[in-house]
């Protein structure tokens, strides 16, 4: 379409310059975003000395997989990984079980009281109890230091309910529901046998949005979990990537030569494991994402229709 318009008239000189700038701008954006990602990948398989001295700055130098060996031999990382998978799978299943039926009910124009229910849900988007009152509720329910604290308080998100509702509203024809009712089909059967099979794209979008949220979350574990054996991967990462590093940076100034040398050999192991663990934890999402990009983008777009 755009081609058909652009071709008959030749691009003017000004247009060419403008396009040149546009391409240059996009190239800069590409490099700025891509460089840190490549650097981390390269650093994860390079000799840590080469990385720490700046010799390695783009492509891997003196390739070694020692970092990954350290990562795979670290029981805390394995345990965190396993926990994260469990929390993500169960949490996402619960999210779908809460979100989809509610969104479908809210999409039905013959659902008496749907405006009231919508208001009830939307209000929580603008006003909430805050950190401590929420913490006290979770604590009073006896959920502290259990998996429940990680998945129940985030069992649904207003935004996702609205997105799913918009999808149902725009893709499930009303005639289908009326025909089903005339044939004596109950709402439950209608939802289970007709609506859900027609809604594969939105189920995928919801599972992805919720799943990524569970995979990446650390704050609920920080406030609700106290035994390390239950820590998800992000909490283990926090210890490796943030706490150790931060303490090294902030105490680094006041050290004598001996401790500095000791620290630097320790720092070498730390930096070996650091890049490997970033790759191992982020790869599952970054690797599948280009194939699922369509669904993610769809999700955002459905949401934007209703603003």
């Amino acid at each position: 379409m755009a081609k058909a318009i652009a071709n008959p008239i030749r691009e003017s000189k000004g247009d060419k310059i403008f396009l040149g700038f546009t391409y240059a701008y996009l190239c800069v954006a590409l490099v700025v975003v891509l460089y840190p990602l490549i650097y981390i990948l390269s650093a994860s398989i390079s000799n840590p000395t080469a990385v720490n001295t700046g010799e390695m700055w783009l492509f891997p130098k003196e390739i070694t997989f020692a970092g990954y060996e350290l990562v795979f031999n670290n029981p805390a990382i394995w345990n965190g990984y396993l926990n994260t998978i469990i929390y993500t799978v169960l949490g996402t299943a619960l999210n779908l079980a809460v979100t989809l039926p509610a969104a479908y009910a809210l999409s039905r124009s013959d659902f008496v009281g749907r405006g009231w229910f919508m208001g009830f849900i939307l209000l929580t988007m603008f006003f909430n109890g805050g950190l401590v009152p929420t913490y006290l509720v979770v604590k009073n329910l006896g959920l502290v230091n259990t998996m429940g604290a990680l998945i129940l308080p985030v069992a649904a998100s207003v935004w996702n309910i609205v997105v799913a509702r918009t999808f149902f509203q725009s893709t499930i024809p009303k005639e289908l529901q009326e025909a089903a009712h005339i044939d004596g089909c109950t709402n439950l059967r209608l939802f289970w046998k007709i609506v859900l099979p027609l809604s594969a794209p939105i189920i995928a979008v919801m599972a992805l949005f919720y799943g990524v949220g569970h995979w990446n979350s650390y704050f609920s574990s920080l406030i609700y979990l106290n035994s390390e054996s239950k820590y998800p991967l992000q909490m283990v990462l926090r210890q490796i990537l943030v706490l150790q590093e931060m303490s090294a940076e902030t105490t680094g100034a006041a050290m004598n030569a001996d401790t500095a040398a000791l620290m630097s050999s320790k720092a070498e192991t730390a930096s070996l494991i650091k890049y490997g663990v970033i790759v191992v934890s982020t790869l599952p999402i970054i690797a599948v994402y280009p194939f699922l990009q369509r669904y993610f983008v769809q999700g955002v777009m459905i949401g934007s229709v209703k603003g």
Binding site: A97, V98, P101, A102, Y104, A105, A155, N187, F191
Partner: peptide, 8 residues
């Protein structure tokens, strides 16, 4: 439909 809303 009210049952559908219940969990949420």
């Amino acid at each position: 439909l009210y049952l559908f809303m219940l969990p949420a």
